[in-house]
């Protein structure tokens, strides 16, 4: 469950203030946020992830005002409840696929069995790359690993920032479907921001900034 109200944000160096429409997502509801570059999509996503603090307004995730948390508590909250998917960088380069997932779970303070990790890798067709370093993976494999990283800890919210921009049509479809499936499995809200109109048809809810 996500609710935002009267969110505003401005970067220190810039005079311009972003104002965002209110978002209300019930359990299992997904949202697509469309918009041109520079319109503040990523800013909104970072506000939802607690990576930025808004100038005004409030964000509630599961009835918790995330901006009322202290910096350390917010780090912990993010680690436990939020999964982020990025456009290109999906995991830590010095670790293998499997160790990335283990490290993620350790940092999220979640205890999940190795067999569950294996299961997820199987599901995402990554099991044979389990012990490879990140640099050995292809674009599509990396994007799938990014999804694995964002859902392995059973988050309440999955936030995806341009997850499909660098993918071809086929991979684009695969990734969006995987994201939706994993969100559903985890009973999580999926919020995707993109300027990629190819994925509009996959979402019932969408807003344009």
């Amino acid at each position: 469950m996500i609710t935002t109200k009267d969110l505003t944000f401005s970067y220190k160096q810039e005079a311009h203030t972003f104002s965002f429409p209110d978002i209300v997502l019930k359990e299992q509801e997904n949202l697509l946020i469309l918009g041109k570059s520079g319109i503040g999509k990523t800013t909104l996503l970072h506000l939802l992830a607690g990576l930025l603090k808004p100038n005004g307004g409030s964000i509630f995730i599961d009835d918790l005002d995330i901006n009322s948390l202290s910096a350390n508590k917010l780090d912990a909250f993010r680690g436990k409840n939020i999964g982020l998917v990025f456009q290109k960088n999906h995991a830590v380069r010095s670790l293998t696929v499997f160790k990335n997932l283990q490290a993620r779970l350790f940092l999220s303070r979640k205890n999940i069995k190795n067999t569950v990790i294996d299961g997820l890798l199987e599901e995402l067709d990554l099991i044979e790359y389990k012990n490879r370093r990140i640099s050995a993976l292809s674009e599509g494999q990396l994007q799938r690993l990014g999804i694995a990283m964002s859902v392995i800890h059973n988050p309440k919210v999955i936030l995806a920032d341009e997850p499909t921009s660098s993918l071809d049509d086929e991979n684009c479809k695969i990734v969006i479907e995987l994201l939706k499936k994993q969100a559903e499995k985890n009973n999580a809200n999926l919020v995707v921001i993109t300027h990629d109109h190819r994925i509009k048809s996959f979402f019932q809810n969408s807003i344009t900034l």
Partner: peptide
């Protein structure tokens, strides 16, 4: 990335 996974400073 590690910070988004929940790692503190």
């Amino acid at each position: 990335l590690l910070r988004t996974y929940g790692a503190s400073n």
